[in-house]
């Protein structure tokens, strides 16, 4: 593994083999509500169309409340959420309109490697 000279000398001075990166996780309470964040939470392209101005304010308030009420992120990593329901795969079915040679060849390429592996 290539290692930069300055890193190598730092490790020597520390008597270590490698570096461990420190996460500067920020407690949620310390998060500043930057205007850009507020603008996003008030943008209908983000939070959706509310039926009335009051609904819009409620949606914005709900999103802001989630931010205020939620616990700090653990370990600085987003937790893996549940898998999105997913229907079983069906076999590839190129549409009949795909008569274009380039398109047909492309989907042939996608299938070609599997065919070779099976043979």
């Amino acid at each position: 593994m290539a290692i930069r000279n300055d890193v190598s000398s730092l490790l020597d001075r520390l008597g270590r083999q490698d570096l461990r990166y420190r996460e500067f996780s920020d407690p949620l309470g310390d998060m500043e509500m930057w205007p850009i964040f507020e603008a996003l939470l008030q943008d209908r392209r983000i939070v959706g169309e509310a039926s009335t101005p009051l609904d819009q304010r409620r949606r914005t308030a709900d999103a802001q409340q989630r931010i205020k009420a939620a616990p700090p992120p653990a370990g600085g990593k987003a937790d893996a959420g549940p898998a999105i329901p997913y229907s079983p795969p069906s076999p590839p079915r190129p549409a009949a309109a795909a008569d274009d040679p380039q398109v047909r060849a492309f989907f042939g390429q996608l299938g070609a490697r599997g065919i070779e592996r099976d043979s």
């Binding site: 079915r93 190129p94 549409a95 309109a97």
Partner: peptide, 16 residues
């Protein structure tokens, strides 16, 4: 042609 194929309702052109 590729874009037309992608627009087709119900098309499932990609292998699973």
């Amino acid at each position: 042609a590729f874009r037309q194929l992608l627009r087709q309702p119900g098309a499932q052109p990609f292998p699973t």
